[in-house]
Design a protein around this nucleic acid. Sequence first.
RNA 1: GGCUGGAUGGCAGAGUGGUUAUGCAGCGGACUGCAACUCCGUUCACGCCGGUUCGAUUCCGACUCCAGCCUCCA
Length: 462
Amino acid sequence: MEITLHNTQTGQRERFEPLVPGEVSIYVCGPTVYDLQHIGNGRPAVVFDVLVRLLRLEYAKVTYVRNITDVDDKINAAALESGESIAEHAERYAAEYLEDVAALGVMPPDVEPRATGHIEPIIAMIEKLIGIGHAYEAEGHVLFHVPSDPQYGTLSRRSLEEMRDGARVEVAPYKKDPKDFVLWKPSTPELPGWDSPWGRGRPGWHIECSAMIRTHLGPVIDIHGGGSDLAFPHHENESAQSRCVNGGTASVRYWLHNGMLTFGGAKMAKSVGNVVTIRDLLERHDGEVLRYALLSGHYRQELQWGESLAHAQGSLDSLYGALRDADDGDNDTAASYSSAGVDAFPKAVLDALCADLNTPRALAAMHALAADIRRADDADTVRSLRSSLLAGGWLLGLLTKSPSEHFQGLSDDATVEHRIAERNAARAAKDFALADAIRDELAAEGVQLEDTAGGTRWRRTG
RNA sequence: GGCUGGAUGGCAGAGUGGUUAUGCAGCGGACUGCAACUCCGUUCACGCCGGUUCGAUUCCGACUCCAGCCUCCA
């Protein structure tokens, strides 16, 4: 199985080979927890979840780390407004985030580190950077000196010259260079802070990821993922710090960036005011539908959020419909394939995912399998195709429920069954007016009937 | 202004130097008491202008437009 991935560092699609054969280390930037997360934040969680599922098929050991940023000025401001302590506020929204992504079918990473739990390694790293001449202390701050790193700018491919032009940053007077960024900053008594060689303070944003990666995965990792809006300055800075500490060796071998969700022609962002929270969406839609919508576009491209949900619902129904048709009494779902070998998985789906995680093509392959199921006429073929479909579902994190749960929900609605029986009695007596009246009533309640050779079945709509 | 990516049918969204993406929706037919489901068939496409080529949506160049980043951001 040859996996290719688009590496931001080189701007090209490359064959993926882990540094240590058979073992993969992967780190993904998680959210800053100051509020409910919007669906755009769900994209990297879902996309890299699929990547990890794929990697685990091929490599014996995959260590997946996704952080939570729980120290940040936005958290401080939000906590002040909500009246909670800063730690309580961050912890509350961290829990909300985990609940949200779980509903999107995202498996927990192996390690979910918090910035506040890594102050020691952060301080150690800053001391090292000062010691080797890449950082300096000024007025209680410690700053990374950007011109000291000749490779700075190679990730986002911009020169120091270019950055000067567009600079919108107000330059603090204590900076040696306008591009220098904060590794450590002083805290006033009401702000979270830790003792350090530079006084009581807190870490800057970028250093936490570098320190957590180093702590949990080592000086060089295989894959680092995150949103494309993090490439600069966050990942550029992270890259610079870690590289300098490594004595010039890059800390990340493959940089992966997912594209933004757009809504109404612009990036979904709080500052634009066009966000939809995952929590809101979950009130009206199944988490699996949201996941399908997020996977319906290639991860590097922008994705138009607008009508994707209605489309995703119909598309997912189609896959579940094929499973329902193929029902052989087994209660297996995609989860039954969580530890299946490579051979159990449909090749077309695997091939698509191996090609830089082409989830739209993988979904097309899933629909091809579904169509084959509906056309097949012998039981063995149907059974085998059904297994393939479910196995593909495992890779994508879809088809996690039984078809009846998908179409009817968990409620075992005796009332609906009773009225269906009434209607069928009316049909048998050729009282079609009554039969249609019952059907219309049920439809008005969101229950749609389907008369099949094997009897009448139903599903919930909207 | 600089850098990056994009422009595909009603919508979403892959891909390819010549042959069906896929899904949702539409249309016609089969099935049905009528529907729904399903099946069969089918309409609608590659921003604009040049170039390369037997042939370009696909390669090259210019142009137009859009988005992202250059400030916090998934």
